[in-house]
């Protein structure tokens, strides 16, 4: 972080990847304009940045790259509001800013030596991708027992990072359960069904396992009881929240849930922590 926590690092768009068939999700690989900024930008999977587009404003976006990937920082952005619409019309080599890394991260220290179950839905798979790439790095892989992923979207063309998903399918050090709500593709060889249903079918034990869950509210609503049925306690269900933010550093006052700020005390909370807070998110 710079001395002024509101001042973004200038970055350049190195590469733009269109992720989904509806063109609504694009990944942006960004490089730092000043080399020393890259050294100062040290992050952990689960954290986010404020992406700053002069003239349009700032938006909080989870970091989709892993700190084990050097030379760039990646964000996958859904076209939704003023800033993201503008970003979707930007081109490679253009300049913008990022502020961060902000917020906390998935509880990596607690998860060491444990099984990790990753559950994601739709375009909320970004910091989960960061986490998977991070755990699969040979140095890190030995720190975790089984890694299992349940990831679903509405249709095959809406899955993020498809090439990587297929690569992970082939590996034997990660169990992949890719699913779609429905498809008319006769060659689809993965699962068909909603994320909670596939979770219930494929995941049989909660023993020694942390579940990190990120997805749309409806997916979370129906996945939570499934996890509880399998035996996960609230302490071991880890979620990442979204909220309208401005400052990103717990000062401007808008992203609170009770006395916690999602930007600074989150975005990662255990279900046990959330159960203590007002249901206002």
């Amino acid at each position: 972080m710079t001395d002024n926590p509101y001042l973004p690092y200038p970055v350049k768009i190195q590469e733009i990847i269109t992720e989904t068939e509806d063109n609504n999700l694009k990944s942006y690989k960004l490089t730092f304009l000043n080399k020393e900024d890259e050294g100062n930008f040290s992050y952990t999977p689960g954290q986010f940045c404020e992406i700053s587009i002069p003239g349009k404003g700032e938006i909080p976006i989870g970091i989709a790259s892993s700190p084990t990937e050097k030379g760039f920082v990646m964000f996958t952005v859904n076209k939704t509001g003023v800033v993201t619409r503008f970003l979707h019309n930007m081109e490679e080599d253009e300049l913008l800013g990022i502020r961060g890394p902000l917020g906390n991260w998935y509880p990596w220290e607690q998860m060491e030596g444990k099984n990790v179950l990753v559950i994601g839905g739709g375009f909320a798979f970004t910091t989960l991708r960061s986490s998977i790439v991070y755990m699969l790095e040979p140095e890190n892989r030995k720190k975790f027992k089984d890694i299992t992923v349940v990831y679903g979207s509405r249709s095959p063309g809406l899955l993020l990072y498809r090439n990587e998903l297929i690569e992970w399918e082939k590996r034997d050090d990660i169990n992949m359960h890719i699913t779609v709500d429905g498809t008319d593709d006769p060659d689809w060889k993965y699962n068909v069904g909603f994320v909670p249903t596939i979770t219930e079918k494929k995941i049989t034990t909660s023993e020694d396992t942390y579940a990190i869950v990120c997805g749309p509210p409806i997916m979370i609503k129906f996945t939570q009881p499934v996890l509880e049925k399998i035996g996960f306690t609230a302490e071991k269900i880890i979620m990442s929240l979204e909220m309208r933010m401005k400052c990103g550093i717990g000062i401007c006052g808008r992203c609170n849930i009770g006395d916690k700020y999602v930007c600074k005390d989150g975005p990662v909370f255990s279900l046990a922590e959330l159960n203590e807070l007002p249901n206002e998110y």
Binding site: T80, E280, Y281
Partner: peptide
């Protein structure tokens, strides 16, 4: 104050 770009509003 709290309206998300998606249209969701926690308050």
């Amino acid at each position: 104050f709290t309206l998300h770009a998606s249209g969701h509003n926690p308050r």
